[in-house]
Amino acid sequence: MPELPAPCLLCRGERAERADGAIRCARCGWRFGDAPDPDLPPPRVDVVYYLRWRDRIKIGTTANPRQRLAAIRHEELLAFERGDRTLEHSRHIEFAELRLGGEWFAAADPLVTHASRLRGDREPWDSYLRWFATDLAAITG
Score class of each variant (00 low, 15 high):
M1V: 07
M1Q: 10
E3S: 00
L4P: 01
A6N: 00
A6S: 03
A6H: 00
C8E: 00
L9S: 09
L10H: 09
L10I: 05
G13E: 11
E14G: 01
E14R: 05
E17P: 13
R18Y: 08
I23F: 10
R24G: 02
R24I: 09
C25Q: 00
A26F: 10
R27Q: 11
C28P: 11
G29P: 08
G29C: 05
W30N: 05
W30I: 02
R31T: 08
F32T: 03
G33M: 00
P38A: 03
L40N: 13
P41W: 12
P41Q: 03
P42D: 04
P43F: 15
D46G: 09
V47W: 07
V47L: 01
Y49F: 01
Y49I: 03
Y50I: 02
L51P: 02
R52V: 05
W53V: 10
R54A: 15
R56V: 02
I57C: 06
K58Q: 11
I59Y: 06
T61A: 09
T61M: 05
N64I: 03
N64W: 12
N64M: 13
R66N: 11
Q67A: 14
R68Q: 12
L69W: 07
L69M: 15
A71M: 14
I72K: 06
A79V: 11
F80V: 02
F80W: 02
R82N: 03
R82E: 15
G83C: 07
R85V: 14
R85H: 14
T86N: 08
L87Q: 08
L87G: 04
L87E: 09
L87D: 00
E88A: 14
H89L: 15
S90Y: 06
R91H: 07
H92I: 04
I93G: 14
A96F: 10
L98H: 04
R99C: 07
L100S: 01
E103G: 05
W104C: 03
W104T: 04
W104Q: 11
F105A: 09
A106W: 00
A106D: 06
A106T: 04
A106P: 00
A108L: 11
P110K: 02
P110E: 09
P110R: 01
L111I: 03
L111N: 04
L111M: 00
L111G: 04
A115G: 03
L118Q: 08
R119E: 14
R119T: 09
R119I: 09
G120S: 03
G120E: 13
D121P: 06
R122Y: 13
R122G: 13
E123H: 13
E123N: 12
P124T: 13
W125P: 09
W125H: 13
D126G: 14
Y128L: 01
L129C: 00
L129G: 04
L129D: 12
W131K: 04
F132N: 04
A133P: 06
T134P: 02
L136S: 10
L136Q: 12
A138L: 12
A138K: 15
T140F: 14
G141F: 07
G141E: 08
